[in-house]
């Protein structure tokens, strides 16, 4: 239930923030006599734009703050995420790379699980704020993700019939695939500095039920037993401009 509330509020917040921007632009509305001049300039710029609009204007490179905080605050947890996106008019192409090392012990110390692996996510976003002069992005998108990981489990178990069982099981270089639906926001904070978030809905395609050791965690995906999981990244990014693109001051009528 909590998860649905959160996703609903995410959606709401996205809508509100875009509505606020529109209001702001409306407040900036100039007097009607300049309208014709503006329209002419716009049409010229639009023509220019259409010939060059699919040439990328910049690359954003960033890292996920949540995984850094978790790395420092949680014991036996190391995660690192980097992201890069490049714009092709209203489409953003994303590459994300990450690495996770985690170990979990059961409270009664009878079992210890370790997982270590890297993941790659690639896919496009559609940016709904393509005309924003700040080049902010409010997007929905799709990712194909794969993770290559190894894990192991050491445990002691007591059975009334068979006595004490001690064992160590491991998987080497398993590969998991999944698809993600993404949505989020990227906004400029200072000149090169950007912040943003990506919320993800992940659907697992790989199945590990036949393995002698069924993985607990898939790096980049989450709990391996769940067919769908949620994810969230909070990015700090830098934008490297590749070309100066004309950004017309679009006015609302």
């Amino acid at each position: 239930m909590l998860k649905y509330l959160i996703s609903a509020s995410l959606l709401l917040a996205c809508l509100i923030s875009s509505a606020q921007d529109q209001k702001k632009e409306e407040n900036n509305k100039q007097a009607g006599k300049q309208k014709t001049v503006k329209a002419k300039t716009d049409s010229v710029i639009n023509e220019l734009d259409s010939s060059t609009m699919y040439i990328p204007t910049g690359v954003r490179i960033g890292t996920d703050v949540i995984s850094i905080i978790k790395t420092f605050s949680k014991d036996d947890y190391k995660q690192f995420n980097i992201t890069a996106d490049i714009d092709f008019h209203k489409y953003l192409f994303n590459i994300e790379l990450g690495h996770l090392e985690q170990s979990i012990d059961s409270y009664n110390d009878s079992a210890s699980y370790e997982v270590k692996g890297s993941y790659l996510k690639i896919g496009p976003d559609i940016n709904f704020l393509v005309k924003d002069p700040d080049r902010s992005a409010l997007f929905v998108g799709l990712r194909y993700a794969l993770s290559s990981f190894s894990d192991n489990l050491s445990f002691i178990d007591k059975s009334p019939t068979y006595g004490v069982i001690t064992d160590k099981l491991e998987n080497n270089n398993l590969t998991a695939h999944w698809i993600e639906l993404t949505t989020g926001l990227k906004v400029q904070i200072a000149k090169p500095l950007w912040m943003g978030y990506t919320a993800r809905f992940k659907v697992r395609m790989s199945n590990f039920e036949e393995e002698e050791l069924m993985p607990n965690t898939i790096p980049g995906y989450g709990l391996a037993e769940d067919k769908v999981t949620w994810g969230f990244n909070y990015w700090i990014m830098f934008r490297i401009p590749l070309r100066k693109a004309p950004v017309p001051n679009y006015l609302k009528k």
């Binding site: 921007d21 949540i66 926001l185």
Partner: peptide, 20 residues
């Protein structure tokens, strides 16, 4: 854009709580 920053912060907190 200032509003957007506030929303991002709020949403981050919500997002963190969903990680539990």
């Amino acid at each position: 854009m200032r509003h957007a920053t506030i929303y991002i912060t709020l949403i981050t907190l919500l997002g963190l709580s969903s990680c539990l």
